[in-house]
């Protein structure tokens, strides 16, 4: 149990997927203008990452390994992710229209969000057990959400000041803001180890 908690906290703070592994940058740039959008995207990401990592773990260990099909795990993972997102969209549309109205627009974008695939690839590289995979997926997605919400908050404040040089506006200033936050997160380094 303690091991699991360590993995969650390490994935959020010391090994933040956005700020140390530099992944999930496309939505990081396009969705970080407002806290509300960033938060919506974050919640959708948490849900999808945990769900797909669990499914991918089961598929990998129960189907691919016994069948000696590890070679094609990239293809299988990406299909599982695309399929899950599609299915989720249909289920939400049918049964949870309120949720759909809030988070529906984020779902198609998630298929190409690299942290979804990254969570599945890391769990294979580090040979995590099923429970550890769930903990890692949860921490990873929560860490990404934390990072994008912080950067969105900075962007909202920046818009009030509003004298960012022309060429730096948009993605450029997001990079600089993320860099400063990443510096701050370096302070957590050494607090925990994750393998």
């Amino acid at each position: 149990m303690r091991g699991l908690l360590t993995i969650v906290i390490a994935a959020i703070l010391t090994h933040n997927i956005a700020l140390t592994y530099l992944l999930g940058m496309c939505p990081f740039i396009s969705m970080s203008q407002r806290i509300k959008t960033a938060w919506g995207m974050g919640v959708a990401v948490i849900f999808v990452v945990v769900l797909t990592a669990a499914i991918n773990w089961l598929v990998y260990h129960l189907v691919l390994v016994p069948a000696h099909g590890e070679l094609i795990h990239f293809i299988v993972f990406i299909l599982v992710i695309a399929g899950t997102v599609q299915l989720l969209e249909m289920v939400m549309e049918r049964f949870f229209p309120v949720l759909q109205a809030h988070f529906g627009i984020f779902l198609p974008l998630i298929t190409v969000n690299c942290i979804v695939l990254a969570a599945s690839l890391f769990m294979i590289l580090r040979a995590y057990s099923f429970a550890k995979t769930l903990a890692f997926a949860l921490g990873t997605a929560a860490g990404w959400t934390l990072a994008i919400v912080i950067v969105a908050a900075i962007n909202e404040k920046l818009r009030l000041v509003g004298d960012v040089p022309k060429g730096l506006r948009g993605p450029g200033i997001v990079m600089i803001a993320a860099g400063i936050i990443a510096l701050a997160f370096l302070g957590f380094g050494g607090m925990l180890r994750i393998q």
Binding site: I173, V174, G179
Partner: peptide, 16 residues
């Protein structure tokens, strides 16, 4: 060589 440097340099690159 760490993550913040990557952000700063890409930010600079985009700016230029």
């Amino acid at each position: 060589s760490l993550a913040p440097g990557a952000f700063f340099l890409l930010g600079l690159f985009l700016w230029i």
